[in-house]
């Protein structure tokens, strides 16, 4: 390891039929006088932001379409930095749409992602002055696609060095096969379900038929 660096315990997450989310261990070392900001930003997708609004006595949804919403977003810092402090480093905020400004709109998106376990704002644990680590969970509702990891070494509000890595999230096995079947051979996907439905109904009728 260099004097300032980081790594993960895995760079590949497989979504298979037993996938319940995955705990990730992030760790590294830093110069004792420098601040560290690590940002995890998932691939960008189109999304709807639903907002519950009270109309009369009922709570109803209003919805707006959004683009470029990351599938996951995590900010890990040491020492502890609030978003307000990160906003003071424009070179970082310009690069990441979700923390681009103070707007209410972005606040709502961050809150919605947090509710799904897809947004973190946490402090890195530090031990022995220059080692840092953090455990966090990638939840089971994560979408397939890469998560980019941006590492920033900060001193006096300026970026001294930066580095990027990639965490890959891939559907594998049955999960991947079924999704491929659904998107590429939809007719066959339905056909199998139809055959199974009829076959199982006939079999269960035979097994459970009253004598």
């Amino acid at each position: 390891m260099n004097s300032t660096s980081f790594t993960l315990d895995t760079y590949n997450i497989e979504i298979n039929s037993s996938f319940l989310g995955k705990e990730i261990m992030l760790f590294g070392q830093k110069n004792a006088n420098r601040d560290i900001i690590i940002i995890f930003e998932g691939n960008k997708q189109e999304a709807n932001l639903d907002t519950k609004v009270k109309k009369g006595i009922f709570w109803v949804n209003t919805s707006k379409s959004l683009s470029d919403i990351p599938s996951f977003f995590g900010i890990f810092t040491t020492p502890k930095k609030s978003l307000n402090e990160i906003f003071l480093i424009p070179k970082i905020t310009e690069k990441h749409n979700l923390i681009n400004n103070f707007s209410e709109g972005l606040f709502q998106i961050r809150k919605a992602l947090k509710a799904k376990g897809l947004y973190y704002e946490e402090q890195l644990e530090v031990s022995e002055g220059n080692l840092f680590y953090k455990k966090f969970e990638i939840p089971d509702n994560i979408s397939e696609g890469d998560i980019k990891i941006y590492f920033y070494e900060i001193f006096d509000g300026e970026i001294l060095s930066s580095n990027e890595k990639n965490l890959s999230i891939e559907k594998k096995g049955l999960t991947s096969n079924l999704e491929n079947l659904l998107t590429e051979q939809s007719f066959f996907y339905v056909f199998i379900l139809i055959v199974f439905s009829i076959a199982f109904s006939l079999i269960s009728n035979l097994i459970f038929r009253k004598k």
Binding site: Q45, K52, K116, S143
Partner: peptide
């Protein structure tokens, strides 16, 4: 479900 105060006011759904 229509009457109760929702636990989360904002929800994101990927398209």
């Amino acid at each position: 479900d229509l009457f109760r105060t929702p636990l989360e006011l904002f929800r994101i759904n990927y398209v």
